[in-house]
Design a protein around this nucleic acid. Structure first.
Length: 463
RNA sequence: GGGCGAGUACCCAAGUGGACAACGGGGGCAGACUGUAAAUCUGCUGGCAUAGCCUUCGGGGGUUCGAAUCCCUCCUCGCCCA
């Protein structure tokens, strides 16, 4: 029986997928999200920092969480930090950072924006609402912020937050008032969304705990404490009346938060790094082919967890894949499933298929056996460069091609690879002593270079 | 505003006038073994026309035969005082 929104328990689902780290008032949140109570859909938001013009697979964790929110019949809301990004979140940072320019933040917001919709589409869902907190934070004056918001924050509490405390203790660090104030802005975000859009739940990375709690505190102070002390109508000032009012206010001020864990690797290495650096969610920075390869290279010790976290396969499917994988780990069925699912989710089925084809052809080593069309299809996704065909007459040094394809970043490095026996031409080891000539062409127009086991590139000889 | 200290390659970090393209660690890449895994061992890790040359130690300027090292100035960060 396919799971319908009404049958998915969001918290259970997130917990099983390794997407739940901590939450505030677990029982209350479970009740709040329960469809049985007739509560209807709840709005859950997560913010994203525009610190770069793309997001990485680390950011995919909260995005997946929002996907599950939608699948469980609730309403995800994406908030881009066009305002908060101007200030800089100290959470998880060990030192003060340089401010990013306004234009830079604006550019990054613009560049990140399409990512959310495409992951949701990949999951078969509609694009969620995407807001920019500059739209409301940008309108708050400094005086208003200090009077109406700042008054609800205790510096004594603020300096207890991990993000601030760590910076106050370190002798070589310190924190500016700018970054110190960050949590106020994020709290204001939550309060604003709560009041104007009925957003009642915030999620974020585990380093966001303090910011999330600040938001919940602020909502409570604005919606319960403030009315109780200042706006209570005199005519209702009986003890019984107070209780009724307080209960009603608290019901309206219900706000929850939870965090998603930091994804780790069993070997202790940083998750989300490949030989080219971070793995990004935009094809300009990380091609679908590289994206597929990243997941395919997942270690056995991690692949089960990643299947749960980064694909939408259900429990039965994951258990089945893992059982078969453990029976024959050398077939790497789990890695293949993970790579296909994750790539299709982010880049679509077509891109995933070509990444699969490319990998199959490029790693089999039997390139010359393929006919021209099959080869073209296979390498469509691999990085390629064009080279003038005329050069072949005189022969082209292999070193130059390694440089041109980016397989080596310098001639020195290219020589190093050649000396180590790391380079293959059309699947055959090559020491670089002889230049590349027309004899090294596949189907009279292509040469496939391979560096080490994993890195490949195609040279197209053009007139 | 005043005083003190720091800024070295992807990260941490040594180096305080020549022996420095710069110790060490981490990370990364490659080789061997494997399964495009993990672990382990080995090599490499600024560039080039490679027994040589060029560019690098926050930016700029200066002293010197010679500077990452000394001086001036600017920028950034930290600590302390006001």
């Amino acid at each position: 029986m396919p799971e319908t929104p009404a049958t998915i328990d969001l918290l259970d689902e997130l917990r099983w997928r390794g997407l739940l780290h901590q939450c505030t008032d677990e029982a209350g949140l479970a009740e709040h999200l329960s469809h049985r109570a007739g509560g209807g859909p709840r709005r859950v938001y997560c913010g994203f920092d525009p610190t770069a013009d793309s997001l990485t697979i680390g950011n995919l964790v909260p995005i997946m969480t929002l996907v599950h929110v939608a699948r469980a019949g609730h309403e995800p809301v994406v908030v881009m930090g066009g305002g908060t990004g101007l200030i800089g979140d100290p959470s998880g940072k060990s030192a003060e950072r340089q401010l990013t320019s306004r234009e830079g933040i604006e550019n990054n917001v613009r560049a990140q924006r399409p990512i959310f919709g495409s992951v949701f589409n990949g999951a078969g869902l509609a694009e969620p609402p995407i807001l920019n907190n500059l739209d409301w934070l940008g309108k708050v004056s400094f005086l208003d912020a200090l009077r109406d918001v700042g008054k609800h924050f205790s510096v004594n509490q603020m300096i207890q937050r991990d993000s601030v405390r760590d910076r106050l203790h370190g002798r070589e660090q310190g924190i500016s008032f700018t970054e110190f104030s960050y949590m106020i802005l994020q709290a204001l975000d939550f309060a604003h969304l709560h009041l104007t859009r009925k957003v009642t739940v915030q999620c974020g990375g585990s380093d966001q705990w303090g910011n999330i709690v600040s938001g919940i505190d602020l909502i409570r102070r604005l919606m319960v404490e403030l009315p109780m002390t200042r706006q209570r109508p005199a005519w209702l000032s009986t003890e019984a009346g107070d209780v009724v009012i307080r209960e009603e206010l608290e019901r309206r001020a219900a706000a929850f938060g939870f965090t998603v864990p930091l994804v780790t690797k069993a070997d202790g290495g940083k998750f989300g790094k490949s030989e080219a650096g971070a793995v990004w969610l935009t094809p300009e920075r990380t091609s679908p082919y590289d994206y597929y390869q990243f997941w395919l290279n997942t270690a056995d010790a991690d692949v089960g967890r990643f299947l749960k976290t980064f694909t939408l396969l259900d429990r039965g499917a994951v258990e089945d894949i893992m059982a078969r994988h453990q029976a024959e780990p050398n077939k790497r069925l789990a890695q293949t499933a993970l790579a296909e699912q994750a790539t299709a989710l982010r880049h679509g089925d077509a891109e995933m298929q070509s990444a699969v084809q490319a990998a199959r052809a490029l790693f089999s080593g039997e390139l010359s056996a393929l006919d021209a069309d099959a080869l073209e299809a296979a390498i469509a996704d691999a990085p390629s460069v064009n080279q003038p065909r005329a050069d072949l007459a005189a022969g082209v040094p292999l070193i130059d091609l390694l440089l041109a394809t980016g397989l080596a970043s310098s001639k020195r490095e290219a020589r190093e690879f050649l000396a180590a026996g790391a380079i293959r031409v059309n699947g055959t080891p090559h020491d670089g002593s002889a230049p590349i000539t027309t004899a090294d062409l596949l189907h009279d127009r292509l040469t496939v270079l391979k560096r080490g086991k994993k890195k490949q590139a195609v040279v197209r000889w053009v007139d």
